[in-house]
């Protein structure tokens, strides 16, 4: 599997490493994907890197690669963001993978081996949901709102109504809320806020977890929040050019 830029892998690692320390990557002809729960079982993260994400991709037999994020991160730090990355996994020797970074400009090449782990992964079945509300907005804006409000209080409430979408945080000595209304005047789709809902709803989530979920803003200019009463929120970032996505499910706080 050869990626044109290592930056994609770096960003994916940054987006999951606070939640997941080790995870199985499932490789098949469609691409590479992973699903993992955080240790508290509060967040489920799913990553899909489709074949379209790669400059070249070949997977003759489906394989599962058990990756420890810490050494993987150390290896990836050795790659320049613009360098190509080739990941090689051998079906005959499933003890490790090889990573080759190529800098075409400088004619430099570096090669690493990463030992694979035998991870007893727990795969969760996520039912197809009919969401009560969906909000799409610029990922940078969502990130700023979450980062700012997480400083105010540890509970982040998201309310959807005719007024728009309201993000509220309450701390011991301050409270703040931010309201976004659908924007239709903005030309660029990536800068638009779109809100759809069947019934008004209001749900509360742990702000520190939501903060971790905003790291994936680096992977996509837009984010979609899907909510339904008393269900986990789905926060989805679609990568450009059908390259794949990263999705987080965060369990709500309840009475």
């Amino acid at each position: 599997a050869r990626l044109p830029r290592s930056a994609v892998l770096k960003k994916i690692l940054d987006s999951v490493k606070d939640l997941v320390k080790e995870t199985n990557w499932d490789c098949n002809e469609e691409g590479m994907s992973m699903q993992a729960l955080d240790t508290g079982r509060i967040v489920l993260v799913e990553v899909m890197l489709r074949e379209a994400a790669f400059e070249s991709y070949a997977c003759e037999v489906p394989m599962t690669l058990g990756i420890d994020m810490e050494p993987f991160g150390k290896v990836l730090r050795c790659a320049g963001g613009d360098e190509k990355v080739t990941i090689k996994a051998s079906r005959n020797d499933q003890d490790h993978i090889e990573l080759v970074f190529e800098n075409e400009e400088k004619e430099r090449m570096s090669a690493f081996e990463l030992k694979l782990m035998d991870i007893d992964g727990e795969h969760m079945a996520v039912p197809d949901a009919e969401w009560g509300a969906e909000i799409s907005m610029p990922s940078s804006e969502f990130k700023k709102i979450v980062m700012d409000l997480a400083e105010i209080g540890s509970d982040l409430t998201i309310a959807v109504s005719k007024l728009g979408v309201t993000f509220t945080a309450q701390g011991n000595n301050c409270k703040g809320s931010m309201v976004l209304q659908p924007s239709t005047a903005v030309d660029k789709k990536s800068e638009q806020v779109a809100i759809s809902f069947t019934e008004p709803l209001e749900m509360t989530f742990a702000a520190p977890y939501m903060k971790m979920i905003t790291k994936a803003a680096a992977l996509s200019s837009t984010v979609t929040l899907s909510l339904d009463e008393a269900c986990p929120i789905c926060v989805r970032y679609e990568m450009e050019d059908n390259a794949g996505h990263i999705k987080y499910y965060l369990a709500p706080k309840e009475d």
Binding site: G40, R41, V43, M124, T204, C231, P232, Y249, A251
Partner: peptide, 14 residues
């Protein structure tokens, strides 16, 4: 106050 739920009450193992 509010209690943090986990995902197990929503998602099951296949």
């Amino acid at each position: 106050g509010l209690r943090q739920g986990t995902l197990h009450s929503f998602f099951s193992k296949p």
